[in-house]
Design a protein around this nucleic acid. Sequence first.
RNA 1: GGAGAAAUGGCAGAGUGGUCGAAUGCGGCAGUCUUGAAAACUGUUGAGGGUCACACCUCCGGGGGUUCGAAUCCCUCUUUCUCCGCCA
Length: 423
Amino acid sequence: MLQLQTIRENKKEIILALGKRNIDAQTLLDNVLQLDEKRRTTQTQLDNVLAESNSLSKEIGALYKTGKAQEANVLKEKTVHLKEESKQLGEDLNAAAEELQNLLYQIPNAPHTSVRKGSSEEDNEEVFKEGDIPTLDTTALPHWELAKKYDIIDFELGVKIAGAGFPVYKGKGARLQRALIAYFLDKNTEAGYTEIQVPHLVNELSGYGTGQLPDKEGQMYHVTADDLYLIPTAEVPITNIFRDVIVNESDFPITYTGYTPCFRREAGSYGAHVRGLNRLHQFDKVEIVRVEHPTKSYEALDGMVEHVKNILRELKLPYRILRLCGGDLGFTAALTFDFEVFSTAQDRWLEISSVSNFETYQANRLKLRYKDENGKNQLAHTLNGSSLALPRVLAGILENYQTPEGIKIPDVLVPYCGFEMID
RNA sequence: GGAGAAAUGGCAGAGUGGUCGAAUGCGGCAGUCUUGAAAACUGUUGAGGGUCACACCUCCGGGGGUUCGAAUCCCUCUUUCUCCGCCA
């Protein structure tokens, strides 16, 4: 969430920035500042009452020690009304703090200056495009047909076992998935990211830490018996490693990569655009996460974008990069670049990666800080990106690499697959 | 799942009702000494709120209670360890 101090000092700028998300934050921020004021005055009042009863208690203690029980009892009576007062003030304080907290949770991150105002994905800016879109002959098929033809993904079987959106990968399809995971992890490790394996279920606190809760409650699968959530992305467990952590400035950059399945309820989406691998309840993803010094985070973001570019170049897939507009930007992000691969047989772009800088928004929730050169604790910046989400990469490969003889495996994946064709 | 023990500052580890935000050691930082380093010595070293700065307030796993006063007593939850059971 946004920092109170920042809201106090830069209210105008934040209102302007949030305007790019089409949010009129004026009253919201006024309420925040008003509540903050109330919280602080209540706190001061409470502190004074507590200070008084503390000193009375000390006096009472001293009197008892010197055997002056009578005098002590007189003082004791004085503490009665102080107690009532502090109880009331404590309740007021908690109420104000909670209300303030809830309000702050409702405010999304302020977009970066480069983010354009916009209402939907229509307004996203294409900032880069690369790779040749192959010309397919008339017999070309969408990936779900190819999956069936070569018996590498069984959607119906997934329905039987779990439900729609839970595909079963078979034979060379399963092997290709495993190859992609290994390839992505290797690329990330080569680039300096430390490979890590994390839990696939997280507690409520972790959900709040990265901002999935309370905002997107319904998008995660909730295991109510144990009050755990299935992760929608590895971002949640990996970034939460740093909840309540104070790192040294010399620890930067902190970089992790991890493979996990991702679970998303995504209720209420049906139709052709969710066919096949386009949108799933469970999918695999390799994620990269960075914790950075505030002055270095945008440089790091550019580095992550370059890194993902290189992977797509090696895979020889046609792709483009979008800078998300305010309306399409995720709740917690300040700046996001989406990568989309062209799905030739469907004649549409599919999102395969999202690379974001959250600045201090998550760090503030996580209490993720570093010690600066003056020994002061400062909030760090967090970033993450997919490198990459498997199903749509798979869809892209199947569709773009199809030939009358079968599906060719991209050169870089052949060593990982152990075969050159799916036929 | 059953029985028992424990949870204190970066780490180790004292502290069982008042002067304890907390001894001591290690680690970290600064200084003295040194050509430099090490050793030794001296000082310093948790977080949050609040203030121009002080003062002051909160925090000894989480929550609640007893008391004028709680790290210390009570309840509860969580976690860890030991033993037993089960198990990939």
